[in-house]
């Protein structure tokens, strides 16, 4: 079954690539703006031999990873503190609901004013966008603690810290993992957006340069790279999730005794 699915997936992808080759060649679209697959592949081949491409990729990944790490760390710590300290959750709920829907890209002018085209500009946008993803999941996850598990921990004399570590954290972990996965995807989007719009060094800036210099196949090649990056990040996040949650019913499957 799995082999069949993989084969179908490969066939679908091959079909899509063939379509991308055929449509411009048949003149159905302007070849200058939609180059055929083979020309994009060519450009990609040239790109990966260029050291400047790797520098740009490194810059993007740096902004992504640093921003994500800050957002995840802050989201977890603040989420747990908000839930554990009495009344804090209620006191902050409306503020969170107000701040959360602000689109991160609306902060681009602010980022430019504050940090220009530095890495910090990218970080500001990435952290703002991905922080909420993690925070909201942590808040939900913490609320999911089973009262029986909590009472068990209390009856055996586990203190506040031990209960956070052994009961609250494992309960929230599946939610946290979902939050991190969503945040990882959002962080990549924002990193590339920031580079594209602000001109901070990275893949996004390179795409903008390719576009303004009419290097259309190169532009597409870079877009493909950005897509592959997103794919890798998602696959990576899912495998981390499976490993960390081997005990969880969503991963372990049905067990027969």
């Amino acid at each position: 079954m799995r082999g069949v699915n993989a084969a179908l997936g490969a066939a679908g992808l091959a079909g899509f690539l063939a379509l991308g080759e055929a449509v411009p060649r048949l003149g159905l679209v302007e070849e200058d703006y939609f180059p055929p697959t083979s020309r994009i592949a060519d450009a990609l081949g040239t790109e990966i031999t260029d050291p400047a491409f790797w520098t740009a990729l490194g810059d993007t990944l740096t902004g992504w990873a640093l921003g994500l790490a800050i957002a995840v760390g802050a989201g977890i710590v603040i989420g747990v503190v908000l839930s554990v300290v009495p009344y804090l959750r209620e006191a902050t709920a409306s503020t969170i609901e107000f701040l959360r829907p602000i689109p991160s890209v609306a902060l681009i002018p602010l980022a430019v004013l504050l940090y220009g085209t530095e890495l910090r500009s990218v970080l500001l946008l990435v952290v703002y966008a991905s922080f909420w993803q993690v925070l909201i999941q942590v808040l939900y996850g913490v609320r999911d603690v089973d009262p029986v598990a909590e009472e068990t921990a209390r009856s055996y004399g586990l203190g506040t810290w031990a209960r956070i570590r052994h009961v609250l954290w494992p309960t929230a972990l599946p939610y946290v993992m979902t939050g991190v996965r969503l945040a990882a995807a959002v962080a990549l989007i924002l990193a590339i957006t920031a580079e594209l719009v602000i001109g901070a060094p990275g893949l996004g800036a390179r795409i903008a340069v390719a576009q303004t210099s009419q290097a259309v196949p190169e532009m597409y090649a870079l877009i493909v790279v950005a897509g592959l990056l997103g794919l890798l990040i998602n696959v990576g996040a899912r495998s981390v999730e499976r490993r960390a949650l081997a005990w969880h019913q969503s991963v372990r499957g049905e067990v027969t005794v």
Binding site: V148, R154, G157
Partner: peptide, 19 residues
């Protein structure tokens, strides 16, 4: 909860930590 006391709950499935 005093240190010299242990509790066994009815809901064993929820009282044991699945992780």
């Amino acid at each position: 909860p005093p240190p010299g006391m242990a509790f066994v709950f009815q809901e064993y499935g929820r009282s044991l930590f699945p992780w």
